[in-house]
């Protein structure tokens, strides 16, 4: 698990009863919990149920968490367990008449996927944080660039009042700025060390 000092600080503050720190933890990681529920194809009712259980468990375990920096991993594991609990409960009715899917094997089957899911979730958290820390002009430009369906350059140009020719350079500058946001830079650096060929890029990319 990567060390994220800001997670540790948030957990410590929340332990001491700081509601704002708790709210920030929830804002940061609710999409992680939610996306895991979605990947398990839970109904919205079941998703709410899982969400409640996960946050309640976290409130209860907050003081007992041995490694606060490992919070994302703890949340991902707890969410998956709760998803399986809900799926199992839903399968109860069918269990007697038909052959139920063997949900006990689910965690094993998912083990590799789970690790990937956690990496994705952590990456997404860092990306959203970095995006939120960008200057407003960059945020507006990037919002239009990631819009689905894509916003035509002519429209971006008129909305932001910049020439079409400078959209490309601005895009590059904003993305470089995004990469340099410290938690994201740390994550990129950590991932480049675990990915083959990472040494060639890694740190140099985030430093330039």
């Amino acid at each position: 698990m990567r060390d994220d000092p800001s997670v540790t600080a948030l957990v410590t503050r929340a332990r001491n009863g700081d509601k704002l720190a708790w709210d920030e933890i929830v804002d940061r990681y609710a999409p992680l919990v939610w996306s895991i529920c979605r990947r398990h194809r839970l109904s919205s009712l079941d998703t709410d149920d899982v969400g409640q259980s996960v946050w309640l468990r976290l409130v209860e375990q907050l003081n007992a968490l041995r490694d606060p920096a490992a919070l994302p991993g703890w949340l991902a594991t707890t969410t998956r367990r709760e998803c399986i609990r809900v799926l199992r409960a839903a399968n109860k009715q069918e269990a007697r008449s038909s052959n139920p899917p063997d949900l006990d094997t689910l965690p094993d089957e998912y083990a590799a996927a789970a690790e990937q899911e956690l990496l994705t979730a952590e990456r997404d958290v860092a990306l959203r944080e970095a995006f939120g820390a960008l200057p407003p002009r960059c945020q507006r430009l990037i919002s239009m660039l990631i819009a689905d369906p894509p916003v035509p350059y002519a429209e971006i140009s008129s909305t932001l009042g910049i020439p079409i020719g400078s959209i490309g350079p601005n895009r590059r500058r904003c993305l470089n700025r995004l990469r340099r946001h410290p938690p994201l830079a740390a994550l990129i650096s950590a991932e480049s060390h675990t990915t083959r060929g990472g040494d060639r890029y890694g740190q140099s990319v985030v430093d330039r």
Binding site: A14, V26, P31, W34, Q52, D124, L127, I146
Partner: peptide, 29 residues
């Protein structure tokens, strides 16, 4: 940019209420 787009959309697709319920659980602390 594509990866960032996915990350931002995941958060936008999530119903606002989902996080609100989580925030409310702090009373149990």
């Amino acid at each position: 940019l594509a990866t960032l787009g996915d990350a931002v959309r995941t958060a936008r697709d999530m119903p606002a209420n989902f996080a609100e319920v989580g925030k409310a659980t702090f009373t149990w602390h």
